[in-house]
Design a protein around this nucleic acid. Structure first.
Length: 580
DNA sequence: GCCGTTTTCGGCCCGACTGTTTTCAGTCG
């Protein structure tokens, strides 16, 4: 089951509890757990595999027990028994905007809808026959709204999935540049985009201005398909690509509280408001109220807002209710700490089994210089093993080394790496004799992503232990947001091996990957492992994507010391060549 | 049902919006 499916299941149980008149805090607990699970950046099943369900905010002993049963047997007797107390037709109606448990239950019992499958079309028929308006608590308007919202629901069904962070950021940056022409004092992204979550739903943008009318009017001239909403404090557009963009404007005096409030996460804000209450302060999107006196403080900046609570500024990437309010905060790694990009493909053709880059070594070096790097790593794929003999491969690798030596004309240093496939049995797709022609190996999985946990774990460990020149585990989970889930591996076991061999885990910044995922970075960093942030560039333009890898590292609480490519060239080279 | 900078028991975030209502319940984020 996917995270979204499990979140929906918990919401159904919560809805059932609500109709049954259960304790309202129990209902809130289920809804909160559902929200947490929906917004996880890893599969819930992985948490279960690693026996870490209770680390999820809002999941305690009881829910962890029910979820455990769900994963083991495919069902939870408790969830089933709660939901069985209601007519099943209630549940699909909950997916229609504007219908919650109470209204859905009323409609289903009034009209005696029986089938879960036809509930929505049954409701549509009832609305068209004007049978809803006469019901107590409903009226003409709500009958019309139900029809409109059923249509929205049906459109939503075919809505595209969430988009990868760099895609969303690209759209947002374009709009921000557009809005800057209005002279707004400050413009920021909000929500999951500001927290740099790996996948984004809608794009939210905030502007600070004393002339909200002007900013909103200009926003509405941004190329769009449809205006969804327009009001005095903001507006929403649907773009031609189907994406929704919300703008919120606020006066500069109130901007700090607004920015904080709409950046979330929801769980962070709930925890923060609880914390504030313990100090006699009540928080909302406009400021901070002293409960005893009723006095309200306002804030121009988020920094001032957090400081007024006696807290340090909490970077958006940490706002996930993972202890950021009570624990000492790490000094997070920053883009400017990065001194080199080590996973770059050039157009040098060594007859690999995967794709080449499109730019030359010279063009890559030039770009690296522009980015202020001290060094880069050239990491072409290994020569195809099906089309060559071992001897031919060794010869190719030897010529390759000579090629790069000959063409290196830059003050930017380079190390000669190779991205080598981890074959299905854990052997590396590069003959032992070719290793002398590289400085180090990035070992990566590019096939058989669905092997079972034991097999794939052993496969990776075999590869990592096969040669001291293996220094980096490339895009470790192999996930691609738009195409496939990652491998199902025993990460604690793999991390132990990386730790022992001082092998770095790659945080691959490629938009569709962002792999290692942030939650695993968090675990790795806690264990004292090293990571390396790479772009996996196949073109010079990709080298600009480094910042998204950095954001993943930051969401994993990584500091500069946790990232090997923040070292200067000499220290890095020493780390790379260690054990050889 | 969760959770701990008052607490392992006894609390539990905050406000906007809407429609159907004369003060509020339900829904949403």
């Amino acid at each position: 089951m996917t995270n979204l499916e499990i979140a929906e299941l918990l919401r159904r149980v919560a809805a059932a509890y609500q109709i049954l008149g259960e304790n309202r805090f129990r209902i809130i607990a289920y809804e909160r757990a559902a929200d947490s699970i929906e917004h996880l950046t890893s599969e819930l099943k992985d948490y279960w595999d690693d026996k870490k369900l209770q680390e999820i905010p809002g999941v305690g002993e009881t829910l962890a027990g029910h979820l455990d049963e769900l994963f083991r047997t495919g069902h939870s007797k408790h969830f089933d028994s709660v939901m069985k107390k209601l007519p099943q037709a209630v549940f699909p109606l909950l997916l229609v905007p504007g219908l919650g448990p109470k209204k859905a239950y009323k409609l289903v019992t009034e009209f005696k809808f029986k089938s879960e499958k036809t509930a929505i079309s049954d409701l549509e028929k009832a609305a068209k026959a004007h049978k809803i308006a006469p019901l107590e608590g409903f009226g003409e308007k709500s009958e019309a709204d139900i029809l409109a919202n059923i249509a929205i629901f049906r459109r939503g069904q075919i809505k595209e999935n969430r988009m990868a962070l760099p895609i969303a950021d690209g759209i947002a940056q374009d709009i921000i540049a557009f809005l800057k022409k209005t002279g707004a004092e400050k413009i920021d992204v909000l929500g999951s985009l500001r927290r740099c979550v790996s996948t984004i739903g809608d794009i939210d943008i905030a502007a600070s201005t004393n002339d909200p009318k002007k900013v909103i009017a200009h926003f509405l001239t941004y190329p769009h398909q449809e205006i969804i909403e327009e009001g005095p404090t903001g507006a929403s557009l649907r773009l031609h690509n189907g994406r929704q963009v919300d703008l919120r404007v606020q006066k500069p005096e109130l901007y700090g509280a607004m920015l904080q409030y709409f950046t979330g996460s929801k769980n962070h804000n709930i925890a923060l408001r609880s914390f504030a209450l313990s100090k006699g302060l009540s928080l909302n999107e406009y400021g901070m109220k002293h409960v005893a006196t009723g006095k309200v403080d306002t804030f121009k900046t988020e920094e001032a807002f957090y400081h007024a609570l006696g807290l340090p500024y909490i970077p958006p990437e940490l706002r996930e209710d993972k202890g950021e309010i009570t624990k000492n905060l790490p000094k997070l790694v920053e883009l400017r700490d990065i001194k080199g990009d080590l996973h770059i493909h050039t157009d040098y053709d060594l007859k690999p089994s995967h794709d080449l880059g499109v730019h030359s070594f010279g063009e890559i070096l030039h770009k690296a210089k522009e980015l202020g790097y001290e060094y880069i790593g050239i990491s072409d794929h290994n020569p195809s093993i099906n089309n060559h003999t071992e001897k031919q491969i060794v010869e190719i690798m030897k010529r390759r080394k000579e090629y790069y030596q000959k063409h290196h004309t830059s003050s930017v240093q380079y190390v000669l790496l190779c991205e080598v496939d981890i074959l299905t049995d854990g052997k590396l797709a590069l003959p032992e004799a070719a290793f002398e022609y590289v400085d180090g190996i990035i070992a990566s999985i590019h096939s058989s992503f669905t092997q079972d946990r034991t097999t794939v774990t052993k496969r990776i460990i075999t590869a990592l232990e096969s040669n001291p020149k293996v220094r980096i585990l490339g895009h470790p989970t192999g996930r691609l947001f738009s195409k496939r889930e990652g491998i199902d591996a025993d990460w604690p076991e793999i991390f132990d091996v990386c730790k022992k061999q001082d092998i770095a885990l790659e945080i691959n910044a490629y938009p569709d990957r962002l792999d290692l995922p942030d939650v695993l970075v968090y675990d790795a960093v806690k264990k004292g492992l090293k990571c390396v942030i790479n772009t996996d560039a196949h073109a010079v333009g990709h080298m600009d994507l480094m910042r998204y890898g950095v954001s993943v590292a930051r969401r994993g609480w990584a500091t500069k010391r946790d990232i090997v490519n923040t070292m200067d060239y000499n220290d890095f080279k020493k780390w790379l060549m260690k054990g050889v």
